[in-house]
Design a binder for these strands. Structure first.
Lengths: 151, 151
DNA sequence: TCCGAAGTTCAGCCTAGGCTAAGTTATGGC
DNA sequence: GCCATAACTTAGCCTAGGCTGAACTTCGGA
């Protein structure tokens, strides 16, 4: 009688491999998304995004920020004027906007399923990079239903 | 009227840093969990866990598996008998069991909020490593309610 | 004006986790 | 019993993302 997913724990090897590959792909983009999202927030709320502030908020050394920003610049997401602040390219702004929308959706979703706001905020940081489009759509439907009064 | 979480996008720098640190911590353990979980599955369902099969299923070269298994061994999670299969230590078995329970919970939860089984299975692979204890408890409560008929 | 502190970058190091290519070891078929 | 093949390991390389410590810019105040 139990046709629960737990039983079928060994999918075909190919499918299995594809999942993990997708996973690794998501991991690679996660850092970029976190950085551009934070840069966008700082630009909006502080007027400028300084490396030292990124370092403080990412909990990382300034040297690490320099290196990471270098990669983002190479990838066409960020522009820097040495010893001035950090700026986003169009691509960077687009990524930041998408990341923020996704982040906010995940937070609202987590709250809708019963998390407190602070925990939701924390968990979203990790979960937002690993939810597929389909999952995000499901989250959005769920949140819409809940917020429409389907309490 | 909007007291939505989206507004407060800049938490105190310290809190912010802590979130990202937690995040990096989760990333570090994710690989270990995936490997021991898969090894446990293979041992249970195939009777043995061969490196070549891990490589196939992780979508990775055998050399990578050798290296990763070496780290797991160093960390006391796995035992190997060269040219025999891979085995889990007590710690490895415990981690595998916890990982599997978490994985299954996340899958059931995703299905409960409206995902199809296949997508749920895929997304769980990524999400399971980034959900906090509190979030998992909330997921469990939610699933319990749903499965109890609160459809 | 100049000088010190804050911010930034550079140099050099490390680990995890990927890869390929080239061995080495076990095993099954003949 | 030998040897081809499959499984595994080793060597060497790469990138991302961490670190420290030292050097370099910028800028405000004395």
């Amino acid at each position: 009688m139990k046709r629960s997913p737990a039983v079928r724990s060994l999918p075909p090897a190919d499918d299995h491999a594809v999942r993990f590959a997708r996973q690794r792909e998501a991991d690679r983009t996660a850092t970029a998304e976190d950085y551009v999202e934070l840069i966008a927030d700082l630009l909006r709320e502080e007027g400028e995004a300084r490396a030292v502030e990124l370092a403080r908020r990412m909990g990382v050394s300034q040297a690490t920020v320099t290196a990471t920003v270098g990669r983002l610049q190479r990838d066409g997401l960020v522009e820097t004027k040495p010893y001035r602040g950090l700026f986003l390219t169009d691509a960077g702004r687009a990524m930041a906007q998408a990341a923020k929308a996704r982040h906010d959706l995940v937070v609202r979703f987590l709250i809708a399923v019963g998390l407190d706001a602070e925990t939701a905020e924390q968990d979203a940081e990790g979960l937002e990079h690993h939810a597929s489009e389909k999952a995000l759509e499901a989250f959005a439907r769920f949140v819409a239903k809940r917020e429409a009064g389907g309490a």
